[in-house]
């Protein structure tokens, strides 16, 4: 059963490799981004005179490299699903023996696997010479990667749940834009959630966003098994919630599907 989705992942990855140089060129934008933030954080750390949100300057920069990598490596499947629903193309996958949602999920993961190393490399080539490395704990890398994978999965089902509303709405891209901006602000893209002021921090922590963006990045630069356990629990809950919601929205949508033409 899983073999078909593994093959979808493989074929999507092969398909994506046709664009590898194009993607490397696009990821260069991240180089500029990280370079600017290094300069800004240098000034901030100089003025504060100590750690910010519990992070040293190199930790903060590597945290930033990772959050940027997480955000930029999440392929925008909301646009694809939204367009397929509105054009009626989703219907053509219904007469094949696979789940539309899992087919898209496998494609999403393939693109994520393709983008992640490229984007990380683009951030690392600036961070490494300018702030140096940090003391990575050996277990931090695989565990953080696992957390990033879980975060990406949450992100996919969250995106799918919103995009599948196209069965009822004219266009869901505006709605996703709101979710995405909330994710950037409350997910800890630029600043760890732990450094947020009290109420905002408490609000952010119960939302799914920091468990997709900041949580996995923090785990990589400031690893503890306790933090991992807490993050895994939140991620498990949110993954279940969004997977159930996306499946429910899809089932409801399909039952009232209207395909163009006829």
């Amino acid at each position: 059963m899983m073999a078909k989705y593994a093959e979808v992942l493989k074929v999507t990855l092969q398909n994506r490799l046709a664009y590898v140089y194009d993607q490397i060129f696009r990821s260069l934008g991240m180089v500029i981004h990280i370079f600017i933030f290094i300069q800004l954080w240098r000034v901030t750390f100089r003025n504060v005179g100590g750690p910010v949100g519990g992070f040293t300057l190199p930790q903060m920069i590597w945290y930033l490299v990772l959050t940027e990598t997480i955000i930029t490596s999440s392929p925008r499947f909301n646009g694809r699903i939204d367009a397929e629903v509105r054009a009626g193309d989703v219907a053509y996958s219904l007469n094949r023996p696979y789940s539309y949602l899992f087919f898209q999920y496998a494609s999403f993961l393939a693109e994520w696997l393709f983008l992640l190393p490229i984007n990380f490399a683009a951030g690392a080539i600036v961070a490494w010479p300018l702030v140096g490395g940090i003391d990575w704990r050996p277990e931090a890398v695989p565990v953080a990667l696992l957390a990033m994978f879980a975060g990406a999965s949450i992100q996919f089902f969250e995106m799918a749940a919103v995009a599948l509303l196209a069965f009822w709405l004219e266009d869901t891209r505006g709605l996703w834009l709101l979710v995405e901006r909330a994710q950037w602000l409350l997910g800890g893209l630029l600043l760890p959630v732990e450094a947020f002021p009290g109420v905002l921090r408490r609000i952010a922590e119960v939302l799914p966003f920091p468990h997709v963006v900041g949580g996995p990045a923090r785990l990589a630069v400031d690893f503890s098994w306790q933090a991992f356990g807490r993050l895994a629990l939140y991620q498990g809950v949110w993954l279940l919630v969004f997977a159930v919601v996306a499946s429910g929205v899809f089932r409801l949508g399909v039952s009232r599907i209207n395909v163009n033409g006829g």
Binding site: A3, K4, E7, V11, Q14, N15, A18, P97
Partner: peptide, 21 residues
Amino acid sequence: SQLWYHLPPTDTFNLLAKIYE
């Protein structure tokens, strides 16, 4: 089309073989 645009047909055939088990 059910063929993957950037890939040779053999890749789509392999995928369909898995999809149809």
